[in-house]
Amino acid sequence: MIGFLIQRVLQALMVVIAMSIIVFLGVYAIGNPIDVMIDPASDQALREALIQRYGFDRPLFEQYFIFMNNMLHGDLGESFIYRLPVLNLILSRLPATLELALTAMLIATLLGIPLGLWAGYKPDSLSAKAIMGFSVLGFSVPSFWVGLLLIMVFAVELGWFPSGGRGPTTEVLGMNLSITSLEGWSYILLPAFNLALFKLGLLIRLTRAGTVEVMGSDYVRFARAQGLSEGKVVGLHVLKNISIPIVTVFGLELGSTLAFAVVTETVFNWPGMGKLIIDSITVLDRPVMVAYLILVVFLFVMINLVVDLIYGQLDPRIRVKAAS
């Protein structure tokens, strides 16, 4: 188990380092960041001073090592545009994104698992077919477009929800959250549902496939032959068996939800990390771009690692394999 853990952590570390090199070189090697930072008409001396200050005159690999060294000390550089430490900038936007992503995952789970169970339990029913049709739409229709439709129907036409923005927040444990108030929920519900749609489609499919497989298994027939009620058959056998793939996907998708929040945040003008990165790419604010990408990759890899470990706990067969 320890060996397995160390191996996975090393692997995760390699990915983060590789991505940091690619991102750093890719973003810094192209174009001249100084042009973005200052008025092109400003004098040469100021220019030179800035180049010196940011170290743009040194070789790229040296810049990279300085960057990595600083990063390990919690210094991710300073935004060209906001003139703020990048780390603070991103961290100040993190709660909004996390809140949105977690609410989306919650919606996807609370809707997706029951719907998938039903679709798998009665696979030939009309309702099951409708659910499956919905799930196909859920992950083939581009999410920004669904976001627009949601805004048009629920904000513009019906006026049930605000069309965008985050609304009031309260500070909880140093983070500004909007899910603490009813009004905050009215702001988060539409974007969270939008962000949830893709996972919802995926979860419905997975849950249905797992349910169909388990319902057709010998052990479910055996359980029925023992006189277990249908509720018990589903609650005990089906749920336990589908929990493994679902936890995996849930974990992996948490990472991609953070990434896809970029789109939803732009559509709903939600002030999270995603909105920040899009704005930064448009104005070529490189330190923010690099820091965001490395941070997201880091989060992603960490989540994968945790999912791997939980997976081992859930499936006794894997645990045995890892031990031997």
Binding site: L252, S256, A259, L293, V297, F300
Partner: peptide, 13 residues
């Protein structure tokens, strides 16, 4: 294992 949108963002950046 990385979402396509993230890779596309990196490259566009």
């Amino acid at each position: 294992s990385l979402p396509a949108i993230l890779l596309a963002l990196v490259l566009v950046a």
